[in-house]
Design a protein around this nucleic acid. Structure first.
Lengths: 218, 218
DNA sequence: AGATTAGTGGCACTGGGTGACATTTGGCAA
DNA sequence: TTGCCAAATGTCACCCAGTGCCACTAATCT
């Protein structure tokens, strides 16, 4: 009932417009004044909506700030679900990543790619947002784990491999994102490059013996 | 200036006692009434201290709730730093994990192990705490990455292997913790068992081809 | 049309968190 | 002891996030 539905009724369209307007207004204010300095009253006022209504659309300030990022995460999960079943999990997730990033880059209407990058900046600059973002990531990870487990035909809890695969994949992605951010974090192509770096270093890891331990199969 | 220092002065001792009292009172109230239902005024009143003073000891409600968990995390980093330099990183971290858990189990005075378990429960039941906890974990991860990088004699940013190793190690630990919690989460020995399971499954992963991808070193 | 229902606005209230300033209390001299 | 300094605490006032409640308006259905 979000981006796929055509929103037939007038009510639906109005709601959708209000929601979008709130997100845009919020992000705009956050970028200009900073997250903490922006009050919910200001966001509501910018869309000419009551404070109370804002809370009917979003659970809180964090929610509206992370709205765009959440959309990307949902798209990521969906993209993985649509990969051919034969593909190994990591390949599916890697491919899906680039699919989503490409879709973000040439978005028809909005500058979604820019919104994504700016949201990341907000997150990086605010501990509160960072925390909320990590929690969201964890929930996405749960969804993704379910997708991978179904795909591989195993039980979620009996076989921990699905959870481990997804968790490690995200760990690598997160390291890449941190590094991307550390290097200035300008565009999505740069992010792609850092992601490549990270996976390259991951390959080196297996060789370099840093992972040597008791779990080398017997 | 926290747990290692003997706290010679009277002021220091008093401060330390107040801090401990606040943590104990807070956790006690959280366990009995729930995290959300407990107000900071109640915590302060329980220690017979003003509300304002509470905020001079802790940045917020989350901080006092996660205080014990933070101590464990610090201990974990310290334990790794004290491992022999020759050890591969993963071995050092795994060993340190069990060292800390053992120290927790036979704590002289307080039921630290129990406090740890209960804190985990609190975290699991409260989205707000979960978010804060994840952020703390991320900060600990940064410290740990620095320790591992120094240990292996590499630069933090030029060589991503340190960050990747720590991130993946934590990913596995977190999966184990989630599973531990899912199974009822009663004691630290059970946690140790689930950790073993997770590392076992990690071994299976490399064999099972789920990780097959382009990064298999040419 | 009128009745129903979703969505909105306006309050009032709780509780987390902060800044400013006065007050006490431990530490350290003379 | 005395008295001074600095650290710790208490008090008060304030802002803002978030929620419950009830009255109101506007879209949908018949």
């Amino acid at each position: 009932m979000e981006h796929g539905a055509p929103a037939t009724g007038l009510r639906e369209r109005k709601k959708e417009r209000t929601r979008e307007a709130l997100i845009d207004a919020a992000l705009d204010l956050f970028w200009r004044k900073g997250y903490d300095a922006t009050t919910i009253d200001e966001i509501a006022a910018a869309v000419d909506v009551s404070r109370r209504t804002f809370f009917r659309y979003f659970a809180g300030k964090e929610d509206v700030a992370l709205a765009r990022a959440s959309e990307v995460e949902r798209a990521f999960v969906d993209a993985v679900a649509e990969r051919p079943a034969g593909e190994p999990p990591v390949v599916a997730m890697r491919t899906a990543t680039f699919t989503v990033m490409a879709a973000l880059a040439d978005d028809p209407k909005r500058g979604s790619s820019e919104a994504f990058v700016r949201t990341r900046r907000l997150i990086e600059e605010n501990p509160h947002l960072m925390a909320a973002s990590l929690r969201h990531a964890m929930e996405t990870e749960r969804l993704m784990t379910a997708v991978i487990a179904r795909r591989q035909g195993v039980d979620l809890h009996a076989d921990l491999r699905a959870a481990l695969t997804v968790a490690c994949f995200n760990a690598v992605s997160r390291v890449a994102m941190d590094e991307w951010n550390e290097r200035g974090a300008l565009g999505t192509p740069e992010l792609a490059a850092v992601l490549e770096d990270a996976w390259g270093a991951m390959g080196d890891l297996v060789d370099s013996g840093w992972l040597d331990t008791g779990w080398k199969s017997e």
